[in-house]
Amino acid sequence: TTIHVGDLTLKYDNPKKAYEIAKKLAKKYNLTVTIKNGKITVT
């Protein structure tokens, strides 16, 4: 599972963990989490 945050690309083997991290990042920086085709993007 890949999380895209701006220019950063973070890879995680565990999709659930990746989603949790994405949610935390989104909350911290007041951003939105988008999931599309298995890719998690924080914008």
Rank of each mutant, 00 (worst) to 15 (best):
V42N: 01
T9S: 09
K24M: 15
I21T: 06
P15Y: 15
I21W: 11
D13Y: 08
K23A: 10
A22K: 00
L8F: 10
L25C: 03
T41S: 09
T32W: 06
K24T: 08
L25Y: 03
V33P: 00
N30V: 03
T1Y: 14
G38A: 06
N30W: 05
L31D: 00
I40M: 05
K17F: 11
Y29T: 00
Y29G: 01
H4W: 09
V33K: 00
T41H: 14
K11E: 12
T32D: 04
Y29P: 00
A26G: 04
A26F: 06
E20W: 15
V5R: 03
N30D: 06
T32K: 10
D13Q: 07
G38R: 06
T41G: 02
Y19A: 06
A22C: 07
D7M: 12
Y19F: 12
A26S: 05
L25G: 00
H4N: 08
H4T: 15
K11M: 15
K27N: 06
D13G: 07
P15M: 13
K16D: 10
V33L: 14
I40A: 01
N30L: 05
I40K: 00
G38L: 05
G6R: 03
V42G: 01
I3R: 02
K24Y: 15
I3H: 03
V42W: 04
K16R: 12
K36M: 13
I35C: 10
N30H: 10
I21E: 06
I35A: 04
I21Y: 11
I40Q: 01
A26N: 01
D13W: 12
K11T: 15
K17C: 09
A18N: 01
L8W: 10
T9C: 14
I3A: 02
N37H: 10
K23T: 11
L25W: 06
N37W: 11
L8K: 07
L25P: 00
K39L: 14
K36H: 12
I21G: 03
Y19S: 04
I35Q: 04
K24G: 06
V33D: 00
T1A: 12
K23M: 15
K36R: 13
K11F: 15
A18K: 01
T32E: 07
P15V: 12
D7L: 09
P15H: 09
N14Y: 06
V42R: 00
K39Q: 15
T2C: 12
G6F: 12
K28W: 10
I3P: 02
K28V: 07
K23E: 08
T9V: 15
V5L: 14
V5D: 02
N14C: 07
K28Q: 07
T2N: 05
I3G: 02
K27T: 07
A18R: 01
L31V: 04
T41Q: 08
T43L: 12
Y19M: 14
V42M: 15
K11C: 15
K16T: 11
T2G: 03
K36I: 14
V33T: 01
A22I: 08
N30G: 14
A26H: 02
T41P: 00
T43D: 05
I21N: 04
L10Y: 06
L31S: 02
L8M: 07
Y29A: 01
T43V: 11
Y12C: 14
A26W: 05
A26V: 03
L8D: 03
D7F: 14
L25R: 01
G38D: 07
A26Y: 03
L8T: 04
V5P: 02
I40F: 05
N37F: 12
I3C: 12
I40C: 04
I35T: 05
L31W: 06
E20C: 09
T34G: 04
K27Q: 10
K39F: 14
T9K: 10
K28H: 07
T2E: 10
L8H: 07
E20P: 01
H4A: 08
K27M: 10
K27V: 08
T1W: 14
K11D: 08
G6K: 03
K36D: 12
K11A: 11
I35L: 10
I21C: 10
K11I: 15
T41D: 05
K27Y: 08
T9D: 07
T41C: 10
G6C: 14
A18V: 04
I21D: 03
G38S: 08
K24R: 13
V33S: 00
L10W: 06
G38V: 02
N37D: 14
Y12L: 05
D7V: 10
Y12W: 04
K16S: 10
L31H: 02
Y29F: 11
T43G: 13
K36E: 14
Y29N: 01
L31N: 00
K28R: 11
N30I: 03
